[in-house]
Design a protein around this nucleic acid. Structure first.
Lengths: 215, 215
DNA sequence: AAGAGTTTGTGAACGTGGGAACAAACCGAG
DNA sequence: CTCGGTTTGTTCCCACGTTCACAAACTCTT
């Protein structure tokens, strides 16, 4: 389920606040979902709660981590160290929680050796060797759109079976390979779509008061 | 619909290839969706096709752009010019297609004046003035998680009604304000979840998992 | 120990979205 | 003008996900 990471983050927040136990209602509001949905999601991966009491935060956190697979080590390669790749390499959410960036690759040989986030940029042609050496299963594509499909193909033939794609292109992959696409401009467009359907602001002042009515 | 941006990009690709007209089948495969779904989506926003012929690429592209709201000008502010904010400011997909970054804000005053993507970083306290001056309706949050809610609150009180949040936190906003969250680490976790459930290559039992697009 | 009060887990209704099939409409040939 | 081929727009149906509601189970008090 795509909501498990949200639950996990909510549990981490509770843990930081030194909350030892919580009900499904509390956790649901913290995660921004319905409590029944949360209970069904959790029950789908085992009975980790206690009726009349709630869930043990630490225990549930571990169980969800294990379900997601965060108790394993996930070596990751990032290809395309432009602005975005640079940001991803430095992103703390990647390096923590089981994900370990083992290599930064770029097709531009003039950047080889440059130090980013404590790692030296290496040549893209080293991909297959690195994948085999570290047992990499997850690849991140942060290249321009034109190069994405080629990079993806070479990732797949090197043995990578899960791809996180930041390039604005639909990638075609063989059966058994997962692709998740994160399209930054699409997100903005979706916001604009909703924004356009909001208040008919016809050359008026900014409405400071709260408005009712959402789609 | 969240698929309109995908259709739009597919149409742009076709237009670059100088394709004047296309059927729903072609466009659907280019966008990676079912043709019936695409026709239903398009019919929901008007009858822009011709039976027996297909869709005029240029005309449909304009209609979708108008539906999304990309024919308008959308001034955008980005708050938090760390690695990610830096990447976003330089991201071409933002500056093109109606979105115009009018200001980069950061709470760290020592960075004020620094030039990023042709814009000078300004102090976060200028937010309200900038929003009113340019009529900004969309704000992008690229701050650390701890600051995100505070930044969001001030965005909302300044008049922003659509927020794109890259900080790993659930933001609570008043009625009428839209928030879209892009969580980079969640995406990786979802990939890991599916990866963990794939074929154990050592054993012969195939899971018969036909997951191409991940839900 | 028993009952009252909670809270989880789950069974059933509900609504929404996707997919196949079909009718309406358009083009071109004869 | 008519007929066959093609493609859109739409209707129907199914399956999934969400939500409500309730029984099972646990704790605490008396």
């Amino acid at each position: 389920m795509a909501r498990l990471p949200v639950y996990l983050r909510a549990l981490n927040s509770l843990l930081e606040a030194e909350v030892r136990s919580c009900s499904s209602e509390e956790l649901a509001t913290a995660a921004g979902v319905n409590s029944a949905k949360l209970r069904k999601d959790l029950s789908h991966l085992g009975s980790y709660g206690t009726r009349g009491v709630g869930y043990d935060v630490e225990y549930l956190r571990y169980q969800i981590s294990r379900e997601i697979g965060l108790t394993q080590d996930w070596p990751v390669v990032i290809v395309g160290i432009g602005n975005l790749g640079h940001a991803l390499a430095n992103y703390s959410g990647f390096s923590s929680r089981g994900f370990r960036t083992v290599a930064l690759l770029d097709a531009d040989d003039s950047r080889t050796g440059e130090l980013v986030a404590g790692l030296k940029i290496r040549a893209f042609r080293e991909l297959t060797a690195i994948v085999h050496e570290h047992g990499v299963a997850i690849g991140v594509i942060a290249t321009p759109a034109a190069a994405a499909q080629s990079v993806c193909d070479q990732m797949v033939s090197a043995g990578i079976r899960s791809v996180l794609n930041f390039a604005p292109t639909v990638l075609t992959v063989p059966e058994g390979v997962d692709v998740r696409m994160v399209d930054l401009s699409s997100e903005l467009q979706i916001l604009a779509y909703h924004e356009q359907r909001k208040a008919p602001l016809t050359s008026g002042a900014a409405p400071a008061a709260d408005d009712e009515g959402v789609a």
